[in-house]
Structure formats: C-alpha cells, structure tokens
C-alpha cells in the first residue's frame, strides 16, 4: 500500500518581512497503514508538513517519498481534512462527500455504487440518513464528520488530517476520536494527524512525533503501546498518563527553544 518517508526536509517561505525558515532537517517515517500524530508548539511548520505530504508544496531541500517514489505534485490517492470542514453550502451532504470522485478518475463506481459508498461512510460516522441535508442544517461536529467522509470517499491510501477536531467542544471532540478509531478499523489508510491536543495524539496514533519549535525538526518520537481496541478510558491508564507527561515535557523544551531562537 503506502508508506511515507520524509528525509532531511528543509523549507523556507519568502515573506514580506524576509525569509521564514519553517522546517529544518525534518525526518519522519510513517509505515504502511500506520497512524502517526505530529505535535509541536504553534508555528513549528506542522501545516507546511501537510502540504508537503499532499504534494501541494515541494520542499527546498530533502525528499518526501510516498511508496518509495518522490512526491512531485498532487496525487489522487490522498485525502485531506482540515480544522475548517469546508463543506460546499450549495451541495447536499451526499454531493459534498462525492466531490473527490468527480475529480479522481478511474474509481470505476457507477451512480448506485457511489450512493452506497456514501451511505456506508455516513453510517460509520453516525450520520445515517443525512444524505440530502444541507451543510447549514448540521452542527459543527456533524460537519466535521461529513468532512471526514469526503476525505475517505475515494479510498485514499494516505489520509492527512490538519487539526480536524481543533474547533470542536471537548465532548464532541471525544466523540469524534471514537469515530476516527472506528473509521480506521474499517478503512485502510496510512494517516498523518496534525494536532495540538496531546490526549488526542495518544488516543488515536501508533506513534507521536514531537517537532521542535521553528524551524521545525524531529525532536522526539513516542511509540504508543496501547491496545489496538481502545476506549477513551485508556487515557486514564498509568502508561498513557506517563506518556502524556513525557510529551508535555518535550513540548515545553521545544517551546523554550523557539522562544530563545526568536530572542536571538
């Protein structure tokens, strides 16, 4: 299927106030079917990382490899979801979810199969029967669920999630964590999740990567050895609590580095 290898990537943006060095010597490996969460202080280049993996951006230096092949541009086997669900208001939920299939060629699904695919996904995220609703009729959490369906409808090999639960209230967020694990159980994909929430990263991922402050580089990697079939209560287990403590400490170190860097 698909593994992601990021080797020695450096990237600099040219802004009005001079060059902004966002990524420095970043190394990251995500095995086939793995779920990796990337955390780090704000401004450490996490969103740049999503653009690099999606092929929306080519790094100044280093390689982004997908399946052993260099990423040179966008490719149709990628699905994306953002903090903003970006549903199209003039389309129904079903039409919104089908959007990627209008772009991706060769999925070989006829109209009926496409409808079935949508209902299947909606059932997985707990939105059965919402096919013909408009986005304006949905709550924030429901919109985000629909946005996840859209990211997965074309069975992408790589799923890129850029803080998808960041704007939701705490309860809805936890509901969606459970939905995300359910999706992962039923669909096959390699996933990179960008997040600010350490509990989210530990609950969802197989591995958590901490980026150092700007310019971002790999600072710390934490393997999450928790049972595959986990409920939210797993976060109260001693292993999870000690992992969270370690991660918190690493973030603090990364932040300090960034503050010092900015002071200089």
């Amino acid at each position: 299927m698909s593994d992601i290898k990021i080797q020695n990537v450096c990237h600099t943006y040219n802004t009005n106030s001079g060059p902004l060095h966002v990524l420095d010597q970043l190394d990251l490996e995500i095995g086939d079917g793995d779920f990796v969460a990337v955390v780090g202080p704000s401004g450490c280049g996490k969103s740049t990382l999503t653009k690099l993996v999606a092929g929306l951006l080519i790094p100044d230096e280093g390689d982004v490899m997908l399946d052993g092949e260099r990423v040179k541009g966008p490719r149709s086997n990628v699905g994306m979801a953002f903090q903003n669900p970006v549903l199209l208001e003039w389309r129904t939920i079903e039409q919104n979810i089908l959007l990627p299939l209008e772009i991706v060629k060769g999925h070989g699904l006829d109209a009926r199969q496409r409808k079935e695919r949508v209902s299947e996904l909606l059932a997985m995220v707990g939105l059965e029967g919402f096919e013909n609703k408009r986005p304006s009729e949905l709550s924030g959490g429901m919109r985000q669920r629909a946005s996840l369906c859209r990211a997965l409808v074309h069975r992408p090999e790589v799923l890129i999630l850029d803080e998808p639960f960041g704007a939701l209230d705490a309860f809805t967020r936890e509901d969606l964590w459970v939905v995300m694990r359910e999706l992962r159980r039923q669909e096959k994909f390699t996933c990179m999740l960008i997040t600010h929430d350490l509990r989210e990263s530990v609950y969802l991922a197989d591995r958590v990567v901490v980026l150092s402050g700007r310019p971002g580089g790999t600072q710390y990697v934490q393997d999450v050895d928790l049972p595959e079939d986990r409920g939210l209560d797993v976060l109260f287990k001693p292993e999870a609590i000690s992992m969270l403590a370690d991660l918190r400490e690493q973030i603090a170190i990364g932040q300090k580095r960034q503050t010092i860097g900015e002071a200089v």
């Binding site: 653009k51 999606a54 092929g55 929306l56 541009g73 966008p74 490719r75 149709s76 990628v78 994306m80 953002f82 903003n84 970006v86 959007l99 990627p100 772009i103 991706v104 859209r150 074309h154 890129i160």
Partner: peptide, 10 residues
C-alpha cells in the same frame, strides 16, 4: 482550504 481540497486531488 477550499482550494486545497481539490488541488490535493490534482
């Protein structure tokens, strides 16, 4: 993001 959703699919 609207642009990226479609752009990432080529």
């Amino acid at each position: 993001e609207y642009r990226d959703i479609l752009r990432s699919l080529g």
